[in-house]
């Protein structure tokens, strides 16, 4: 693809100075439901992962960036323009929406060329072939998209979004439905584009996807920005978090006094009919609890780790 640096028109020069994506105090609510709450950040070239549990407001945020939702408060700027007011900015934005829908009756090639032509590209056919090749769909390019597998559709959507070599690429859950090999290929592709100076923002609710490609991440929880910055730094903070374990036994108080003596146990809290324990090492703790209960003659009724899902990790981030 002809990836000559974008520097020959005056409009681009202005854009080059402004951050590619800029949000200032952005909020969006639907009636009484606040989907995005007072978010401020700006992004330059590179890959950024937008992370958060389902319902955190990632899609709402991406839709605001793509101009399909106006913010209820605050300002959204993409390449210095407001995308919900000015369609001309789409010349330099590529969008891969989450919904899997595509024009099933078009072939992959036709679909990509459709995007190229609507972008007003002079040589739509050649650009489409390049884009198809970049996502590795050459073999299926002349089949109707309706016959594609999920992963192929996803790649066709990506090809359609990058056919005009956009300055900013927004992807909503781009890895859904892709097999591991396709994911790797897609990650490489996004990496290449980032290296060429493009700004890429993709959302995901799966930590590992983000871990693999995102150097920078934004974490959203319940509509708010919970963390942002380098992935590894944030990840370290997350694993630093002690494990919470809830225990019910025949004599909670007695068990608690024994457990608190152990160095591996950070904190013990007596609750109604239960004792909750914070520990750094799960496996060590399993030995400790067995020993302790035996020694104290306390019968264990239930030992359950508190929810270790992604959502609780985010909760931790928010309530820290």
């Amino acid at each position: 693809m002809t990836t000559a640096p974008v520097a020959n028109s005056p409009a681009v020069d202005i854009a080059a100075q402004a951050p590619a994506i800029e949000l200032v105090n952005v909020a969006r609510w639907y009636g009484n439901v606040v989907a995005v709450n007072d978010i401020t950040f700006s992004l330059g070239p590179g890959i950024t992962g937008l992370l958060g549990p389902n319902g955190a407001g990632k899609t709402t945020l991406l839709h605001m960036l793509a101009g399909f939702l106006a913010p209820s408060a605050g300002t959204v700027r993409v390449l210095g323009l407001s995308p919900s007011r000015d369609p001309s900015v789409y010349r330099r934005i590529g969008l891969v929406p989450e919904r899997e829908s595509v024009y099933g009756f078009l072939t992959g090639f036709e679909y990509v060329r459709f995007n190229a032509r609507l972008q007003g590209m002079r040589d739509a056919d050649a650009a489409s072939r390049v884009a198809i090749e970049r996502v590795g769909l050459q073999d299926a390019a002349d089949r109707a998209i309706g016959t594609y597998s999920k992963g192929m559709r996803q790649r066709a959507k990506v090809a359609g979004a990058l056919v005009h070599d956009p300055q900013v690429l927004l992807l909503d859950e781009p890895f859904n439905g892709m097999d591991p090999r396709q994911r790797l290929a897609m990650m490489d592709l996004l990496g290449e584009m980032a290296a060429a100076g493009r700004t890429i923002l993709f959302s995901s609710h799966i930590l590992e996807e983000v871990e693999r490609i995102g150097t920078e991440i934004l974490v959203m929880v319940a509509g708010r920005l919970a963390a942002s910055g380098d992935f590894r730094a944030i990840r370290a903070l997350m694993t630093d978090r002690p494990h919470m374990i809830t225990i019910r036994s025949s004599d909670d108080r007695r068990l608690a006094t024994i457990l608190i003596a152990h160095p591996a146990v950070f904190a013990v809290e007596l609750q109604q009919n239960a004792v909750s324990v914070q520990t750094a090492h799960l496996s060590a703790f399993r030995r400790i609890i067995a020993e302790a209960s035996l020694r104290a003659g306390v019968r264990l009724i239930e030992v359950s780790p508190a929810d270790e899902s992604l959502e609780s990790v985010f909760d931790y981030l928010v309530h820290r």
Partner: peptide, 10 residues
């Protein structure tokens, strides 16, 4: 996040 899940390591 499976590392934190005791069931997975049994």
């Amino acid at each position: 996040m499976s590392a934190g899940n005791p069931a997975a390591s049994s």
